[in-house]
Design a protein around this nucleic acid. Structure first.
Length: 569
RNA sequence: UGGGGCGUCGUCAAGCGGUAAGACACUAGGUUUUGGUCCUAGCAUUCGCGGGUUCGAAUCCUGCCGCCCCAACCA
């Protein structure tokens, strides 16, 4: 049966995608543009960790290259030395590899092209298309006008070419202070597109660069670096997000006015937004810096490294991306879709094991005190080849506190005083007596079992509605289990005031759980379902040899909780 | 009182003049030794709104409305 499902999904994957980007690429190919080549790139700025939104860009660029027999580059957009760090380039490379996108030997940096970019800036000056400007940042802003009023030309706009050439060289040589001069293109101060009003090309910055060190005193801006870097690498389709739509005329202007080896086409698409989280590096960075999370890889973060640590697989993220599609309209994807993509995979592949998160002791009064039985348990009902394992059963057990109510409505199928339930794979038990503490909370259940129901079926054919998971008290191993929930309590945390105020105070609950003994030696990389509770994995950071820490990747669908919540209102 | 982009189910998203795919979510049943999974059924007579063209419009034209982006020496 699981075979059928796998066939179905692979068949679905093989259907040709027809989003607007691929449609454009096919048209370009048909028109013979760029010699019929397809070459894409992912251009991260190394100023933070990659998040799930980046996975959309990575997988799309890589996927498109694959589908059209083209190539995919990784290029770090490192034109701002003040914000960029080597730690980030390493984490970015690790995350892209993990997602399964392969840039082969094409790892590039915009900073690789600083020399060429400098030459091209000189080229523009020489052709009267750029000039050195002495306006301060404040003046530049003022001269630029507004979206509704034309700007005014800089007084330096007609500076003689030779003078600009000289000044620009001296800027490069470090003869001036930061902010003293800039290099600007000479386009049109009255242009209706603000990006075309004599945009800045270079600024003086004396900060050391993570790769070029102190070689440069001037650094190009994004607009002067990005398209040219694309062209240098032979990129044919430069995919980016919607906010760069207004930059496209400028992108094209540089391509037209510079001796570039290829003419890439910029195509813009909507970025990914997800409910119950934020997706901007700036906002994520603040969570890290203020210690609101444990780091970029905190399992609650929407970062690739956070999701990996939470238990997501590369495949689940790829499937998620296939399902959200790509389009031009602003949208926010339901977090449930992401959760569903990991449940879908783990349902088919994860072992079912037993763990009790909030233990309640059960004593089987008619079970011999010194007896221990090995109960055969199915590892994965969705996958027969996963086999079975033996789990010890004895007189004293733990069950989940939530699975017992002294009195409960008819719809409550779990253990009640005087009623019978099945312990998964083991026996039917009936609760005879509840022992409570001073506050009336149940601390121990006295139960009897029916020896004839071994394995979980009654020979007389009587049925029980509930099946509970359990662990043998004597054999159970204690473990720290981290129950993660949504980082934010609101679906749109950025709406209204400060998003920090919408953090979910219950995004992490830590419990000491009782696990079946076979889980004691599990190591990083192991994923399983704690039966009836959710999917869990061994934490890759805080686990110690012999003392795994477990993270809840996601809960199971819980129609009982839904039902109860509904009737409670 | 500028320019650019976008409006199809609660959320994503196909559709490109021939009479609204699919997924998630949700609802109702069935199966079930996980209240999980799985299965079945339901879930937009309607595509932001109004006109027009056409035998026929979500698709073409037109007017309006709404949302997003652009005035960092960020990317």
């Amino acid at each position: 049966m699981s075979d059928d499902r796998e066939l179905d999904s692979s068949a679905a994957e093989s259907t040709e995608k027809s989003d607007f980007i691929r449609t454009q690429i096919r048209a370009d190919l048909a028109a013979g543009r760029n010699d019929g080549r397809v070459h894409t790139r992912f251009p991260p700025e190394p100023n933070g960790y990659l998040h799930i939104g980046h996975s959309k860009a990575i997988l799309l660029n890589y996927g498109v290259a694959q589908e059209f027999g083209g190539k995919f580059n990784l290029r770090f957009d490192d034109t701002n030395p003040e914000k960029e760090e080597t730690e980030y380039v390493n984490s970015i490379k690790r995350d892209i590899k993990w997602l399964g996108a392969d840039w082969e030997d094409r790892e590039f940096y915009a900073s690789d092209y600083f020399d060429t970019l400098y030459e091209w800036a000189v080229h523009l000056i020489s052709n009267g298309k750029a000039f050195v400007c002495s306006l301060t940042d404040e003046q530049i802003r003022e001269y630029r006008g507004t979206v509704k009023e034309a700007g005014r030309p800089s007084p330096d706009r007609d500076r003689p070419i030779a003078e600009s050439l000289d000044l620009f060289e001296r800027m490069k040589n470090g003869e001036f202070e930061e902010g003293q001069y800039t290099l600007r293109a000479k386009i049109d101060m009255a242009h209706s597109n603000m990006k075309m009003r004599d945009p800045l090309l270079y600024r003086i910055r004396k900060a050391p660069h993570h790769r070029t060190g102190d070689k440069w005193n001037i650094y190009p801006f994004y607009d002067f670096a990005h398209g040219q870097s694309d062209a240098i690498e032979g990129i044919t389709h430069s995919l980016c997000t919607l906010e760069f739509e207004v930059n496209r005329p400028l992108y094209d202007w540089f391509i037209e006015n510079l001796p570039v080896p290829c003419k890439p086409r910029q195509i813009e698409m909507a970025r990914l937004n997800l409910t119950y989280t934020v997706m901007s590096k700036r906002k994520l960075l603040r969570l890290v810096q203020e210690g609101l999370v444990t780091g970029w890889d905190d399992p609650r973060m929407p970062t690739i490294s956070g999701l990996r640590r939470l238990g997501y697989t590369p495949e689940s993220i790829r499937k998620f991306n296939d399902r959200i599609g790509v389009a031009k309209r602003d949208s926010t994807v339901d977090l449930d879709l992401l959760k569903w993509s990991i449940r879908e995979e783990l349902n088919l592949t994860a072992d079912r094991v037993m763990a009790v998160l909030r233990p309640l002791k059960v004593v089987i009064t008619n079970y011999p005190a010194d007896q221990v039985e090995d109960i055969e348990c199915v590892n994965n009902p969705e996958d027969e080849s996963a086999g079975t394992r033996l789990v010890p059963f004895s007189r004293e057990l733990y069950i989940e506190q939530d699975d017992f109510r002294e009195e409960a409505p008819r719809k409550f199928f779990r253990l009640k005083l005087g009623s019978e339930v099945r312990l998964k794979h083991a026996y039917f038990i009936t609760c005879d007596e509840v022992i409570k503490d001073d506050e009336g909370n149940p601390v121990e259940l006295r139960c009897t079992y029916d020896p004839a129901t071994r394995g979980g079926d009654s020979p007389d054919g009587r049925k029980v509605k509930g099946t509970l998971h359990w662990v043998s008290a004597r054999h159970a191993v204690d473990a720290e289990v981290r129950l993660y929930d949504n980082l934010f309590k609101e679906p749109f945390p950025e709406e209204g005031g400060d998003y920090i105020a919408n953090l979910n105070p219950d995004s992490l609950e830590v419990v000491t759980a009782k696990l079946e003994p076979g889980l004691a030696d599990k190591t990083v990389g192991y994923r399983c379902q704690f039966m009836r509770l959710g999917y869990f994995c061994v934490d890759s950071v805080d686990s110690q040899p012999g003392a795994a820490v477990w993270n809840r990747t996601t809960t199971l669908r819980d129609s009982w909780a839904k039902l109860e919540a509904r009737s409670g209102k």
